[in-house]
Every structure is written in C-alpha cells, then in structure tokens.
Simulated scan of single mutants.
Amino acid sequence: MNPAFDIDALRAIVTGNDLGSFAQAAIHLGRSQSAISMQLKKTRTSNRSATFHS
C-alpha cells in the first residue's frame, strides 16, 4: 500500500520540476522558499523513500 501524497507538496514538486528550481516554484505558487522546503522534507519523511536523487 502506497501512502498518499499531500496535494500541495505534489504541486510544489511538479512546479519545481517544470520551472527548474524550487525557488521559482515558491514564487509561482505564492509561497516562501522555506515553506516549499518544509513540504519537500515532510514528503520525503512521510514516504520513507528517496524522492529526489542527487
């Protein structure tokens, strides 16, 4: 069973990917960059898997 993603976090991930950076995603979504970072951290922690690879 896969845990559900938070829709706002998923939107931040997709927007960051589309725009090429999470800083740009934050501007586009009208959120602070730290709010986006916290959503990504929460997503990685709650899914217990690597969301992104370096």
Results as ranks from 00 to 15, higher is better:
residue 17 N to A: 12
residue 24 Q to I: 01
residue 14 V to S: 01
residue 35 A to N: 04
residue 36 I to K: 07
residue 25 A to N: 06
residue 6 D to L: 01
residue 53 H to A: 10
residue 41 K to S: 12
residue 28 H to V: 02
residue 7 I to T: 10
residue 11 R to T: 04
residue 2 N to W: 13
residue 22 F to S: 08
residue 50 A to T: 12
residue 50 A to S: 15
residue 54 S to C: 10
residue 45 T to A: 14
residue 7 I to P: 14
residue 5 F to R: 01
residue 12 A to G: 08
residue 46 S to H: 14
residue 3 P to A: 06
residue 14 V to Y: 11
residue 9 A to H: 00
residue 45 T to Y: 07
residue 15 T to F: 05
residue 49 S to A: 15
residue 25 A to M: 02
residue 6 D to T: 06
residue 52 F to K: 00
residue 44 R to V: 09
residue 23 A to T: 05
residue 53 H to I: 13
residue 16 G to F: 02
residue 38 M to S: 09
residue 48 R to G: 14
residue 20 G to H: 05
residue 43 T to M: 08
residue 33 Q to D: 12
residue 6 D to W: 03
residue 25 A to E: 01
residue 48 R to A: 15
residue 11 R to A: 09
residue 24 Q to V: 09
residue 19 L to R: 01
residue 52 F to N: 00
residue 43 T to D: 09
residue 34 S to D: 06
residue 8 D to C: 08
residue 47 N to V: 09
residue 20 G to S: 03
residue 19 L to H: 08
residue 42 K to R: 15
residue 17 N to T: 05
residue 14 V to Q: 09
residue 2 N to L: 13
residue 49 S to C: 15
residue 34 S to M: 04
residue 40 L to C: 05
residue 26 A to F: 09
residue 34 S to V: 11
residue 32 S to N: 00
residue 54 S to Y: 09
residue 54 S to E: 12
residue 35 A to F: 05
residue 14 V to H: 08
residue 11 R to C: 10
residue 25 A to C: 02
residue 6 D to P: 04
residue 50 A to W: 11
residue 11 R to F: 12
residue 48 R to V: 06
residue 45 T to R: 13
residue 26 A to R: 04
residue 50 A to F: 09
residue 31 R to H: 10
residue 47 N to M: 15
residue 26 A to D: 01
residue 6 D to M: 03
residue 37 S to L: 01
residue 5 F to N: 10
residue 41 K to W: 00
residue 48 R to Q: 15
residue 28 H to M: 03
residue 45 T to V: 14
residue 35 A to G: 11
residue 16 G to R: 03
residue 1 M to C: 13
residue 41 K to E: 12
residue 36 I to D: 04
residue 22 F to V: 03
residue 5 F to T: 05
residue 44 R to W: 06
residue 24 Q to P: 08
residue 33 Q to P: 09
residue 50 A to N: 12
residue 45 T to G: 11
residue 12 A to V: 01
residue 27 I to V: 14
residue 13 I to E: 00
residue 10 L to Q: 03
residue 52 F to W: 14
residue 1 M to F: 13
residue 21 S to I: 02
residue 43 T to Y: 06
residue 23 A to R: 00
residue 24 Q to K: 10
residue 39 Q to V: 04
residue 32 S to C: 01
residue 24 Q to E: 08
residue 32 S to T: 05
residue 42 K to N: 13
residue 49 S to G: 13
residue 39 Q to L: 11
residue 51 T to D: 11
residue 48 R to N: 15
residue 42 K to P: 07
